[in-house]
Design a protein around this nucleic acid. Sequence first.
RNA 1: GGCGUCAUGGUGUAAUUGGUUAACACGCCGCCCUCUCAAGGCGGAGAGUUCGGGUUCGAUCCCCGAUGACGCUACCA
Length: 488
Amino acid sequence: MNEVAAAKPRVRFAPSPTGYLHVGGARTALFSWLFARHTGGTFILRIEDTDFERSSDEMVEGILEGMRWIGLDWDEGPFYQSKRLDRYRDTAGKLLGSGQAYYCFCTKEELEQRRAEATAAGRAPKYDMRCRDLNAAASAGRVASGEPAALRFAVPLEGATSWEDAVFGRLEFQNEELEDFVLLRSDGIPTYHLSVVADDLDMGMTHVIRGADHISNTPKQVLQYQALGAPLPVFAHVPLILGPDKTRLSKRHGATSVIAYKDMGIVPEAFRNFLALLGWSPGGAGKDADGKAREVFGSEELTKLFSLEGISHSNAIFDNDKLGWFNTEWIRAYSPEKLLPLIEEEWEAIHFVPSVTREEQIAAIALLRQRARSLRDFAEAFRGYFSDDFAYDPAAVAKFLKDEPVRAMVAELGARYEAASEFTEGGAEAELRAFAERNGVKAGVLINGARVAITGQAVAPSLFAVMMLLGRQRVVQRMRAAEKIAHS
RNA sequence: GGCGUCAUGGUGUAAUUGGUUAACACGCCGCCCUCUCAAGGCGGAGAGUUCGGGUUCGAUCCCCGAUGACGCUACCA
């Protein structure tokens, strides 16, 4: 461990607000957050908005919303790079002053043209360093007189740059493979390469946990730390998340924004649990006494188990089925009281207003959560439990409530319930079974028919439990109306 | 093209880090339960660890090569 890592960890999540929080970003944020919480360190949020063209406040809000949704709270920030421009110029000044950076007067057009020529000629499209040996004083003069110039870092011509990556081990790049990258654009705005280093240094980052797509950028940053005489943070590169076709996850694969999963009725714990296990495993620490690995982990447990060592080296494929499984597990684990506000959001989204009391809602949720796959179920298939405003699933009607005799029997049974002296779970079942026998049909036929009449669905909890939940009045009313239910 | 990284069933991951009939979870199939559907219980199919060489008494694990995938290759981040 180097001297920086020995200090209390300080880690950050540094998204660029050029889009909403996507699943890859969410996972790196989660890993950083888990690491900070595990070690008792500090988690910092920094918005890298130096690309004014593509950044927007709306995207910043979207990112914050996504982070709040999966429960990632930050201790410092959000800091905005757009408000710290002076600091980057200071750092650039140091590099220029020590001769490790130089002004470049080549225009963007010239560079593009040379790049095209080099590629056409089969050469590597690297910057040709033509401004590198310009006289420093003369260059400074040109800049002072208003000539636009970018500032480039002077990469050593020989040797190699390496670091010890916390997940990949020792990584090394030959300096000759690197080009003299731009630190400050000609409009004075820093590039990513400069601003990350300046900020990570300034904000005292001990660990830089980010996507593996940054591995190739890392030597450029290591070189700056060295040029500045600063100690290196620990770099930990996290493998990428791919779509089912093994290409980088994109809108083509469906939802890419974290909030889209919220909209699909995924519960935050489920999403976080799923994400945590994509590219990370607790190893032996996550196993039970019988040797079976558990996978359903809450926030506290993930925090306890998390370590950089458990991060995988290879890219992972996003599997919707498994996410769905985590969702059912977590919906079942939530208390009805905790589920209710989440369900209310679903209702609001479709402008549905439940007509039953809160107590009845809680009771219904307690009964239904066992078989919910998504929060959306509560606003769709389960509507009949919360209001008389629900639809009959045509397939369910066709399957169990199509025959006229059955419809008539369900209606008649409804009338019997109405006339009965009491309405209890056992009594209702006994009544139904006796009625079925007298009419020469199997009890199951009436149970299934009544279920459709009462809930509109072929799928539901045990019929008699549902009856007690809905209450005699609704049950009777819906059963008596069985003959009027439309069917084809 | 150059540079870099990675490679265990369809998917996510394990394998006391050279000694296992290669394990667990998701998914899939079947059976049980049963008033439906889930859940649950039980069982099954599915990888000999990308391929080829080496080192070793012995390689998922170490070395070399190939292949493939992915990443980077901007005055984007």
